[in-house]
Design a protein around this nucleic acid. Structure first.
Lengths: 152, 152
DNA sequence: GTCATTGGTAAAGTGACTTGACGACCCTAG
DNA sequence: CTAGGGTCGTCAAGTCACTTTACCAATGAC
């Protein structure tokens, strides 16, 4: 039942969902770009789920799954790839013999640091455009929001 | 070359990437939940790329692709699904016979409005927790950021 | 001891993509 | 006008990041 002539429809101004989305995409694109240009060019966006903040180091696969909203199997698949690529290892957990723990290799740690550098770089650019004080204000508000949202 | 004992590694505090990510996930989860409970339960996260702000209405597939960072083929696949599900239609573009234009059906428009309601709902909750003024401050900063980032 | 629960994982299937190719159409140069 | 390079959407085939199902081993409550 197509409108004919088509009925007009406009979203209004962007709400907070759209406002959060674009900057995040910029950050993520920059992370991947820096990784690739520093030689970590076998990493794809899906891998960032594991490597990004707060990181997989010294955590159990199930914890990573719960924290990322993906299934244990999905995380396990990604961990397998990253292990094969030499970014991390899974070792037996001494405290629970069912379980394992993930440890980043030195190369994996480099990835984590590169990602933080990429984000810091974007932050500096934004600080330049917004002003240092306003960026700090933004960060402070987002930190408070993170605390609120953690409850979900 | 696993560290043994494993060398410690900690990300520091969350940078702006992580800070933006969580709230956005909350918004997106809420959108999908509201859609499903209002009967739009054939929509999956991938469809939101088309339905979300600024929407596909009266736009060409190629524009949507460019605006979303996905290939024309990927968008075309999603448009095909959404058309089959009755959320939109593709019609010939009178100005360019190579091209088409996407029009939301009334059902598709309902989806758009439901998504906006879901985001507005989250905004209200955050306003309650942060205070109206601080949420408005956050929105204002994000709007300025959106303008900066649009250049990319 | 038993038994439901919680750890990780293997295997098969799916679907949201990518890559490559295509015909239709537009648009400018000559 | 017409030749040809670029752009439009789309078809087809392949890939891979997942989901679903199922499992076994270890744990912990009783």
């Amino acid at each position: 039942m197509p409108p004919d002539p088509p009925q007009p429809f406009e979203f209004g101004p962007p709400l907070i969902g759209a406002l959060l989305r674009r900057p995040l995409e910029v950050v993520q694109a920059r992370m991947l770009a820096r990784l690739h240009e520093r030689g970590f060019d076998d990493l794809v966006p899906a891998h960032l789920v594991i490597m990004r903040h707060p990181g997989a180091h010294d955590r159990r696969p199930g914890e990573i799954a719960a924290g990322s909203g993906q299934s244990k199997q999905a995380i396990n698949y990604l961990l397998g790839e990253l292990e094969r690529l030499g970014y991390l290892e899974r070792r037996a957990d001494p405290d629970d013999r069912r379980s394992k723990r993930v440890y980043l290799t030195p190369r994996g740690i480099e990835v984590g640091m590169t990602m933080r550098e990429a984000v810091a770089e974007v932050e500096r650019e934004w600080a330049e455009a917004l002003g240092d004080d306003d960026l700090e204000q933004l960060r402070a508000l987002l930190r408070r929001l993170a605390a609120i949202v953690r409850a979900d």
